[in-house]
Design a protein around this nucleic acid. Structure first.
Length: 200
DNA sequence: CTCTTGATCTTCT
DNA sequence: GAAGATCAAGAGC
């Protein structure tokens, strides 16, 4: 049955509760591939994420709390939004337990709901370029510092579980100079909406 | 297609 | 003063 599927064949399930995030980032991150992220009803299917653990030198929380990263040190199930290179916003889902300071960076989504609104916000028509990067998807979904520390299971956020297990691939993370060898990037195999292809 | 550069916030040295 | 979980535009091939 094709009903209830997105244009590219995904079938969103029930809303994720905050408890989904209360476990290892390395369990939660790959399970977020195929889930649907909406902000005020606009968004699409998560196709690429990266896991950051507080023991990882690449994580913002590695050197302890700062005004920017304090949400990572709070309870799981909340959004951590930060300014990247002075220009862009990037959004993370805080995981594990309070004070563990671990989170999943959302790197790319497949546009599915509110296409015209996302195209208008981005000034871009091409669906492959709409949300294929952490800064791009925040612009398309209207995510900013105003969303920092908001709960992920309450408006304006809505995260719908995947209803079918997708084919998830992993690889090394993008744009880092520390922890470059750690295989904590996860993606939907073969997706055309990734920020970069996975190595074969 | 690949390479280079500018934008300019937060944190660290 | 420099680097960073980025992106877009322009030059060159």
């Amino acid at each position: 049955m094709a009903q209830n599927r997105t244009p590219n064949g995904h079938k969103p399930g029930k809303p994720l509760k905050r408890a989904f995030f209360a476990r290892s980032v390395h369990e939660a991150a790959p399970e977020l591939i195929g889930a649907t992220l909406l902000v005020n009803g606009i968004g699409g299917v998560i196709v690429e994420v990266e896991a950051y653990h507080h023991t990882d030198p690449a994580a913002h929380s590695f050197r302890g709390p700062t005004p920017r990263n304090m949400v990572m040190f709070g309870p799981p199930g909340y959004a951590y939004v930060y300014r990247s290179y002075g220009i862009h916003w990037c959004v993370n889902f805080v995981c594990e337990l309070e004070d563990s300071a671990s989170a999943v960076l959302i790197r790319a989504i497949e546009p599915a709901f509110g296409l015209a609104e996302m195209q208008a916000r981005r000034g871009v028509e091409n669906q492959r370029l709409l949300c294929s990067g952490p800064g791009k998807l925040c612009q398309a979904l209207g995510i900013s510092i105003a969303h920092n520390a908001l709960a992920l299971d309450a408006p304006p956020f809505e995260i719908l579980a995947r209803s079918e297990a997708p084919d998830v691939v992993s690889g090394t993370r993008i744009g880092l100079t520390k922890g470059v060898e750690l295989p904590w990037r996860y993606g939907l195999r073969g997706s055309k909406f990734l920020s970069k292809p996975f190595a074969k």
